[in-house]
C-alpha cells in the first residue's frame, strides 16, 4: 500500500534523466561516424560517434494540435474508433500523430476485425483502402517487418494509417482482402517484395517477380545487384558498393 507521495514519485521516475539515458543507450545504433562512409576511414574526427534510433513514438491525447489544422479531426476519429471497438480496445497498441498524420499501431491478430470496424462503423466509414506497403527494419528485433495500410473515408473526408508488425521468424499477417478486395494485388506485391505472408489471401502468388524467383527483393538484406561499369579506363562500381555519405 503506497501513499500518494510514493505513487507520484514512481510515476515521475520514468522521466528521470538517468532512466531516459539508459533507454537511449539501449536503442539500436543507427549510424556511426560523421558521414556514414563505410568504404574508407572517417577523417572528420568523429569516427567513433554513434547515433542511436529513437524508441517507438507514442502520442497522447489530445491528438489535435491547435497549430496544425491537418490534425483537427483526429480526436473525433480516435473517439469513434474507441467507442466502436468497446471491449476490444486493446487491439490498438499505441497511437502516433506525426507530420500531420495519425497512425494506429495495431496488434496483427486484431487487424482484420479492426479494419472491418473501420469500414462499417457509421462514424468511421473508411470505404477506400489505399493498399498496403511493406517496410523492413532488420535491427528492430521481434518486429522486423511492418505492413502499413492507408485508409480513406470519403464520407468524412478523412485519412488514417493503420500499421502492424510481424517478426522475421514468423512473417504472418492476416489478409484483409475479405474486407477490402482492392488489397488483393497490394498484398501479393508486399509478399513478393518483403516475404510477408498474408493469411487468408485467396491466391498469394508473386506478382512482379517471376514465379520461380528466390528471395524477396525489397528486404534490406537483399542486395541491389549490378555490375561495375568501365568508362574511359576508370571503373565505376554498382550503386550499392560506391562510397556513400549517409
Amino acid at each position: 500500500m503506497s501513499n500518494e507521495y510514493e505513487r507520484d514519485r514512481d510515476e515521475q521516475a520514468e522521466e528521470l534523466p538517468a532512466v531516459q539515458g539508459r533507454e537511449r543507450l539501449a536503442a539500436p545504433v543507427k549510424r556511426t561516424g560523421m558521414f556514414g562512409a563505410r568504404t574508407t576511414g572517417d577523417t572528420s574526427g568523429y569516427g567513433g560517434l554513434q547515433v542511436r534510433g529513437s524508441a517507438p513514438a507514442s502520442s497522447s491525447r489530445p491528438f489535435a494540435d491547435p497549430e496544425d489544422p491537418r490534425t483537427a479531426d483526429y480526436d473525433r476519429v480516435a473517439d469513434a474508433l474507441e467507442a466502436a471497438l468497446g471491449e476490444r480496445g486493446d487491439a490498438v497498441e499505441r497511437v502516433e500523430v506525426a507530420n500531420g498524420e495519425i497512425t494506429f499501431h495495431v496488434r496483427r491478430e486484431a487487424l482484420l476485425e479492426l479494419v472491418r470496424v473501420l469500414r462499417d462503423d457509421p462514424a468511421l466509414r473508411y470505404e477506400l483502402c489505399i493498399g498496403v506497403s511493406g517496410v523492413h527494419f532488420p535491427e528492430h528485433t521481434g518486429r522486423e517487418l511492418q505492413a502499413v495500410y492507408h485508409l480513406r473515408s470519403i464520407t468524412h473526408n478523412s485519412q488514417i494509417r493503420v500499421q502492424t508488425t510481424c517478426p522475421d521468424a514468423d512473417p504472418h499477417v492476416p489478409s484483409i482482402v475479405s474486407v477490402y478486395p482492392t488489397n488483393d494485388w497490394h498484398e501479393r506485391e508486399t509478399w513478393d517484395f518483403f516475404g510477408i505472408v498474408f493469411d487468408g489471401h485467396p491466391a498469394l502468388t508473386r506478382i512482379q517477380m517471376p514465379d520461380d524467383w528466390h528471395g524477396h527483393p525489397q528486404r534490406k538484406d537483399y542486395p541491389l545487384g549490378g555490375i561495375p561499369v568501365e568508362y574511359r579506363g576508370a571503373t565505376v562500381p554498382p550503386p550499392d558498393e560506391r562510397r556513400s555519405y549517409q
Binding site: 506497403s133 517496410v135 482492392t182 494485388w185 497490394h186 556513400s244 555519405y245
Partner: peptide, 27 residues
Amino acid sequence: LGCHAVSDGGTRPYRVHFRDPSFVHLQ
C-alpha cells in the same frame, strides 16, 4: 497517385512506395 515515404533520418530514402492508380485499376 500516392507516395508512402519512410526515412531513417539519413540522406537517402529508407523506403518509398508508390500506389499507382493503373496498378489498382487493372484489378
